[in-house]
Amino acid sequence: HNLTITQGKLFFHYNPKLCLSEIHKMEEVSGTKGRQERNDIALKTNGDQASCENELLKFSYIRTSFDKILLRWEPYWPPDFRDLLGFMLFYKEAPYQNVTEFDGQDACGSNSWTVVDIDPPLRSNDPKSQNHPGWLMRGLKPWTQYAIFVKTLVTFSDERRTYGAKSDIIYVQTDATNPSVPLDPISVSNSSSQIILKWKPPSDPNGNITHYLVFWERQAEDSELFELDYCLKGLKLPSRTWSPPFESEDSQKHNQSEYEDSAGECCSCPKTDSQILKELEESSFRKTFEDYLHNVVFVPRKTSSGTGAEDPRPSRKRRSLGDVGNVTVAVPTVAAFPNTSSTSVPTSPEEHRPFEKVVNKESLVISGLRHFTGYRIELQACNQDTPEERCSVAAYVSARTMPEAKADDIVGPVTHEIFENNVVHLMWQEPKEPNGLIVLYEVSYRRYGDEELHLCVSRKHFALERGCRLRGLSPGNYSVRIRATSLAGNGSWTEPTYFYVTDYLDVPSNIA
């Protein structure tokens, strides 16, 4: 807008934040220059609390790290170098490059900038070799853009010569660093050979998330399962459950009422301010606690030095998902009996873990797994792929695949051998790939016309006998059925096997 004052003059007093240069501009645009008398524009009460600059400061050096910015700028000295009290560095987070010096300023003089007072450097006698002032900004957020400017702080001049310097606002972004852990990993099994893994992005990506790394490792069953005799009275049979499938998407929606109208769909109840505040506090606490764990609990591995020492970490090797089922080394339970199943799973520490690289999504279907087997899954978020990966501390989750139908069934015939004193040795093959492992066998036998009897055969007993022995049988026709019990439950009964026990007292003698 054009402003013209045809008559009258300007009068400025007691404006401590208004620089004289701005008042002189007002004289020019209003056409009143030359009308004012000496005392109409006070030299001592206008701009006496402001830094009124008329020179431009330029930054000469900028260096960044993930949490620091090192700045240096060209030296500046007023005509009387004693008038320079120091520099004021202003900075704040700036997602967009549209910041002005006066953003967030209120009537009390406060604003949204963080201000650092910096002492002037030592003055050199040689004007050509003056030290460049600077400042190291610490405690910054990774991968965050900051708006920065600097200006001088000078003393009051009796001659009211307006001098000083100020830089333009520059924008500097800190470097990326390792992201925080992925949030809320959930693993479920939808079949006997697959596990579905879902997660949420890290709360602090500290860069642009480029991919996720998912490692999985087959877990050995508890050692007590191999040692305890679950045929003993009072000892509860062990059981394991597989990871249940995901709930429906509708039930997972946030901010939804727990109660549904019987007449149909209901609208979600909005969260109160107290609920939102509580969630923010919980989120802040979780982030602080995660940072504490990362800094205190997890110790970084030592990389190899120039002395030739090897990095103890196993090298990563990509495998196809079809090879995942046989990740671990199978060892027989008892070496003397080769027909026992290889369900003991000690994992070799030198073995390469299978892994998958996930790009542009937060889910993965891990296939080719062994049925009813526990897996430990390790999830890392990465925001750099080359020249070397920059990934987060791992988040861990466990899951067990679903049982395989008929995996616990005894394959092959049940054979028998009759000894003296009416002892019958029953023999059968253990299931080759049971659900988890076989903890015991149930032997059901009966003599024709009598009630059915049951015998429990422990895992250890089966390994020693290759089956079991029935003792003290009365003469007669017998039928026997056997079924295995694994961590997933009972298998199917075998087809009945028949044998006849004679009275050993009636056996004919070869003595003449």
Rank of each mutant, 00 (worst) to 15 (best):
D204W: 15
N206T: 03
W216C: 09
W216N: 10
E217R: 14
R218V: 03
Q219V: 06
S223A: 12
E224H: 15
E224W: 12
D229I: 09
D229Q: 08
D229S: 07
C231M: 03
K233Y: 11
L235H: 11
R240L: 10
W242R: 07
P244H: 12
P245G: 11
P245H: 10
P245K: 12
S248C: 14
Y259K: 12
D261H: 10
C266K: 10
C267H: 15
C269L: 08
C269K: 02
L277Q: 06
E279C: 01
E281P: 04
S283L: 12
F285P: 11
R286H: 07
R286F: 13
E290Y: 03
D291Q: 11
D291M: 15
V296R: 05
T303F: 08
T303Q: 13
S305R: 13
A309Y: 04
E310V: 03
P312L: 15
R313I: 07
R313M: 03
R313N: 04
S315T: 13
S320M: 06
S320F: 10
L321I: 10
L321W: 10
G322H: 06
G322D: 15
G322T: 11
G322V: 08
V329F: 04
V331T: 15
V331Q: 14
A335T: 13
P338M: 11
N339A: 09
T340C: 04
S342L: 15
V345Q: 14
S348N: 14
H352F: 13
P354N: 06
K357N: 11
V359N: 08
S363M: 02
G368D: 05
F372L: 06
E378L: 05
L379C: 09
L379W: 02
A381S: 11
D385C: 10
E388R: 08
S392N: 01
V393I: 14
A394L: 07
A394V: 06
A405F: 13
K406W: 11
D408H: 01
D409A: 05
D409V: 12
I410M: 03
V414R: 01
T415A: 10
H416L: 08
E417L: 10
I418Y: 06
N421C: 03
N422I: 03
V423Q: 09
H425W: 05
L426A: 00
N435P: 01
V443E: 00
D450S: 14
E451M: 13
L455W: 06
C456Q: 01
V457W: 06
S458A: 07
K460E: 08
A463Q: 06
R466W: 03
L470R: 01
L470I: 11
R471D: 04
P475A: 09
S479G: 03
V480S: 02
R481L: 11
I482Q: 02
R483H: 04
N490G: 15
T494Y: 01
P496F: 07
Y498A: 13
L505V: 07
D506C: 04
D506G: 11
V507T: 14
S509R: 07
S509I: 15
